[in-house]
Design a protein around this nucleic acid. Structure first.
Lengths: 245, 245
DNA sequence: GAGTTTTGATGTCTGCACACATCGGTGTCA
DNA sequence: TGACACCGATGTGTGCAGACATCAAAACTC
């Protein structure tokens, strides 16, 4: 009916509803009707229904017969879903989301380094050493874009080298936080000597199958990068719920 | 048309497809047709289409015009989605899934303890102390079911007390692993003195806002519980992928 | 107030039109 | 004859419209 568009109506509907809910313009408890969404988005019932089903699986809404589609409170959302994370990063909750991701990284990466030291394939250990060397070169040359790419590569190798698929799945989120840090100009012109050394230490420890050393070095990186977090991120209000289980 | 059933057709379709894919009877790369699913499940197109949309959002399938519905390889699945985790726990990958969850716990809980020591509300700190006392009582009395409940409560408080919604979201998975450990008879009749002491230490450190102590004590619990992991869990093959980023 | 009926929303089914990647046939050219 | 470009047929997901089924809230009756 309309001219060709890049994304499907289905994706557009998901995006519209998702950003509205996560962005806050559709508060928890609010009820929308499927027909209302059809009119609003000018799409058919199937598109709306399929989108709602996806959002339901993400915990953003629930459907109740005779009532409508009810928006669920944030503690019902799946905080690990890439869509939810993206929507939160795009909205007011950006700071809180970045802090959560930073805390998750600081928990996971040291253990990932430890596991990589125990399990990673030989080629991956070698590449880790190469990348850490290249990071030093790029850092001393002041080539921040290249450094960012290598940094992402380094942490990707670390996470995949753990052999834990959940850790490996965090690669995208880590890349996002590293990129965000650089894009926002939070990185010094030249990475600190300490950071360069610790990355190298992680690589060497993994190459040497020194799990304790790998973990400790990775832990130093995480403490350091948490400490230099944008204060705004740290100051985001935390949420404490009773486990409703 | 059919007699009434407890779960909706939609959920049944998701369950059928999901378990088939995660369980391995529909291998990666395999292509199924929507019509074929209608016949197989005896449901209409809308039900199939809505279910496929959900599976698509989980990364289990992709739809290609003129081709059909293609099953995606396991590394495209969202390993944090509760459905995926449940299906993996129910199938051959149970061991690998339990190991992944155990590793995630061992990474997250020490940091959660540290954050709880810094941020948790007063009431939560107090309850943590009470629960750790009750755990000792139940443990020494040999009341394993009660101990399990208290153990779950303890770790739930820890995770929610961190104020990190991603950590808090792991409560269900932690409960699953703790329950599994007990149900499978992997727990001694009386919890070890060390475990009881460490739980108490975590609670005391959090009550005293001693973040370092909380982290270290929680780390000891995790190391201990990893060490007594069912050997089968540890022996599960790991997967190492190149980050396709 | 308890039981019944009405109502209005989602759940499910079906037929249709369209978009578009793939495949095979046809024609052209060397 | 063989290689290549073109082009239309085919099949399948995408989107639409309308119908009926189901079920729970709300209104109504007694």
């Amino acid at each position: 009916m309309l001219t060709t568009m890049s994304t499907s109506l289905h994706h557009r509907a998901i995006e519209h509803l998702g950003t509205s809910i996560v962005g806050g313009s559709l508060p928890a408890g609010h009820v929308v009707l499927a027909e209302q969404l059809e009119d609003e988005l000018k799409v058919s019932r199937s598109v709306v229904r399929e989108a709602v089903r996806v959002l339901q699986s993400l915990g953003l809404v629930e459907t109740i017969k005779r009532v409508g589609i009810r928006v669920l409170p944030a503690d019902r959302w799946n905080p690990f879903d890439p869509l939810v994370i993206r929507w939160r990063l795009a909205g007011d909750a950006r700071g809180a989301q970045l802090r959560s991701l930073a805390e998750l990284r600081s928990a996971v990466e040291p253990i990932a380094a430890e596991l990589a030291a125990l399990n990673a394939p030989e080629a991956l250990r070698r590449e880790l050493l190469e990348v850490s060397d290249a990071m030093r070169a790029a850092g001393e040359a002041g080539d921040l874009p290249l450094f960012l790419n290598l940094d992402i590569r380094f942490h990707s190798l670390l996470l995949t080298g753990s052999g834990n698929e959940m850790f490996a799945n965090l690669v995208g989120q880590v890349a996002e936080t590293l990129t965000g840090r650089t894009v926002l100009g939070l990185m010094p012109d030249h990475p600190s000597e300490a950071a360069l050394r610790w990355h190298r230490e992680v690589a060497e420890a993994i190459a040497a199958a020194d799990s304790v050393g790998a973990r400790e070095a990775a832990d130093r990186i995480m403490r350091h990068s948490l400490a230099e977090l944008e204060p705004n991120w740290r100051d985001q209000p935390r949420v404490f719920l009773q486990p409703h289980h």
